[in-house]
Design a binder for these strands. Structure first.
Lengths: 232, 232
DNA sequence: CCAGCAACGTACCAACCAGTGAGTTGCGGG
DNA sequence: CCCGCAACTCACTGGTTGGTACGTTGCTGG
């Protein structure tokens, strides 16, 4: 539930030889697991309450360790927050790396690009929410930990390639840059996750409904293709 | 700077008869002004730090009154937050009421709808940021104060009318609902305001740049028309 | 087998911070 | 002119919260 977004993260050391004989209880002292558990709960608490609103005591209480361990492993509340942020960002970068659209026709590939991004964010809402928190704070923590991260964000290269192929095939005619396409998709997709509450409060419209979700997933694909196909 | 979004709010009682004779100093005790000043600073602080992160002492310090007055006028920190939220929402409702697109052709009107929404949000970023805060908290405060507010949000009626006219004129062919159009525009426009920091941090792309802003303003108009004109 | 260190727990603290008790002062109505 | 109340000030508090001093335990390499 409060699981961290992960592409192929190691997780709770799975193949650790357990103490010979006695109880089947794994290990009493497992640094990997303690750290991971802390991180998972932290991600959940920080997305729910923000950096200022989250309580260190509460995070610790939801773990099978103590508050002291947070300071042992992460140094401070902010250190834990930064680690949570990095964990979540690692997840989306793994997703982006795993994207392979080379087997699809340009139009289908663009549709799939939008659709799979939609799916990823719906499946991992903690990313969008943490991004929201970061933005409201001016992204100081992200700035401190992502320094040159845009160098290895593969998404722009993928989109650039798709736009080229799309132009050759005639389905892309509008002069747009890769980042504009990325922002176009991101804005819609983040909105789906982040703005659920206010949209329900102000319009009584439930964006978590399955039918609505399915329709909104189609919508971004349609809009993307129509937009790219227009102009020129 | 930290001014509240307002359509035609009264503001610092302008025509109060000043104390006969003596100094030109307005009034030492002005409930209207004190309350307004508190609200304006509160909006700024809450958008910047969130409900949990904002400090009551800090808000008071930036005013020419004391903390005690916050409790005198708003009862609690949450009361102040709710008041700030209502103030900001009153602003966008006033904007929506002031929208008059009846003189424009459907296509131009749709473009104007998106463009003016873009402009409003860029000019009043505190709305988008407070909405962001609300969403991260589950919109409990909005829920408590907007109860049946969707009844008098005129935006959906405006869009419904535009879609009908657009269909008659042949520029709208895709089967969409008014709320879908609203969300389509809102997602892009909120993104412009809210995600400035993370986009800069992860892509080194400055969404506050004038040229970028102008292009993004065009973009949503293009995308909207292409999307609505497609399908069928 | 045991020394030593990583991993963990307990108890505690000082600063912070939302909220308040108890007054004082200016001003408008009579 | 002055009464009464709205508007305002000041000093204070107690619960909360991030952070830590210090002691303990289990694991592992030699």
């Amino acid at each position: 539930m409060a699981e961290a977004a992960q592409g192929a993260a190691p997780r709770t050391s799975g193949s650790v030889p357990r103490a010979s004989g006695s109880s089947p209880r794994a290990r009493v002292r497992d640094a990997e697991r303690t750290r991971g558990e802390l991180l998972a709960v932290a991600i959940d608490e920080f997305t729910r309450h923000g950096l200022a609103g989250a309580r260190v005591d509460e995070i610790a209480a939801r773990t099978r360790t103590t508050k002291r361990m947070i300071y042992y492993y992460f140094g401070s509340k902010e250190g834990l927050y930064t680690a949570a942020l990095e964990e979540v960002y690692a997840g989306i970068r793994a997703y982006e790396r795993s994207l392979d659209l080379t087997g699809l026709e340009p139009a289908a590939a663009l549709r799939e690009l939008a659709g799979s991004s939609f799916d990823y964010h719906v499946a991992h809402p903690e990313l969008a929410r943490l991004v929201g928190q970061e933005n409201l704070m001016g992204a100081v923590y992200l700035h401190g930990s992502e320094r040159q991260a845009h160098l290895n964000r593969p998404i722009l290269a993928i989109i650039t390639d798709l736009l080229e192929r799309g132009r050759a095939a005639g389905v892309v005619r509008r002069p747009v840059s890769a980042i504009e396409v990325h922002l176009f998709i991101s804005s819609w997709v983040l909105f789906q996750v982040v703005n659920v509450s206010t949209i329900r409060a102000t319009f009584g419209y439930d964006m978590t409904d399955d039918a609505v979700r399915a329709r909104h997933r189609e919508l971004i694909g349609d809009a993307l293709l129509d937009w790219l196909g227009g102009g020129g």
